[in-house]
Computed example of a mutant assay.
Amino acid sequence: MPERNIEFGKFGARGLKGHEAVARRLDALAGFVATPVTARRGLLARLHYLTRTDHAREAAREAGLTVTDRTLKAWLDGRRSPNRRNLERIETAYRTVRRHNVARYLLARLNREGRGTRVEFHPLNQSQVDRPRQRVITYRTLNVRHWDRIVEAWVAQDDAALDEAWISDAVVDLGSEWGQYEYVSNVGFAA
Rank of each mutant, 00 (worst) to 15 (best):
P132M: 13
R145K: 15
A153H: 02
N111E: 07
N101T: 12
R112P: 03
A103Y: 01
T66G: 00
V67S: 06
R80E: 03
T96V: 06
K73W: 03
Q134R: 12
L142N: 10
N83M: 04
D77T: 15
T92I: 00
Q134T: 09
D130S: 10
F121R: 03
V97D: 09
L72K: 11
D77V: 13
E62W: 07
L76S: 03
A74K: 03
N86E: 10
E62A: 13
R95M: 04
L124H: 01
R149D: 10
R70W: 02
A59R: 15
V97H: 06
D148S: 14
E91H: 12
V119S: 04
V102F: 04
L65A: 05
D130F: 11
S127L: 12
N86D: 09
T141L: 07
D148H: 15
A153Q: 01
I90K: 01
S81G: 07
L65T: 00
W147T: 00
E120K: 15
G64S: 09
V67T: 00
I90W: 00
V136P: 07
E91M: 09
L87M: 05
T138H: 14
P123T: 05
A153N: 03
Y139A: 08
L76D: 02
I137D: 06
G114A: 07
S81K: 11
W75F: 01
W147P: 02
T117F: 07
R118M: 07
I137F: 05
R98H: 04
Q128L: 13
Q134F: 08
E120H: 15
D148R: 15
R118N: 08
P132I: 10
N111D: 12
V102C: 07
G114M: 12
R80G: 01
V67A: 02
